[in-house]
Nucleic acid binder design. Structure first.
Length: 87
DNA sequence: GTTGAGCGTT
């Protein structure tokens, strides 16, 4: 399992579009676009988890600096979080 | 407009 960070997303990108954009590169086991919980507006970044590192790397190679809806998106391995539970 | 929400523990 390998998680990638997807940043610089257009506001128009939602969970569904994120999956559609990355499903072609491998088996996605999890995906989420982070949105501001109070405004409902996208924060402009999200995460996609692939079943294998090979697929994740393929997605990074294919989508990093890829123009989506007029924006060059950033794709790379996600930052490891300090703790698992987040609290 | 760039590295998580949500669960109240899994």
């Amino acid at each position: 399992m390998s998680k990638i960070y997807v940043g610089n997303l257009p506001w128009s990108t939602n969970n569904e579009k994120l999956e559609l954009a990355f499903a072609e590169h491998g088996q996605i086991t999890d995906h989420i676009v982070m949105s501001d919980r109070e405004t409902g507006r996208s924060r402009g970044f999200g995460f996609v988890t692939f079943a294998s590192a090979e697929e994740a790397e393929a997605a990074i190679a294919a989508k990093n600096d890829f123009e989506l809806d007029g924006r060059r998106i950033t794709v790379n391995m996600a930052n490891p979080r300090p703790q698992q539970r987040g609290w």
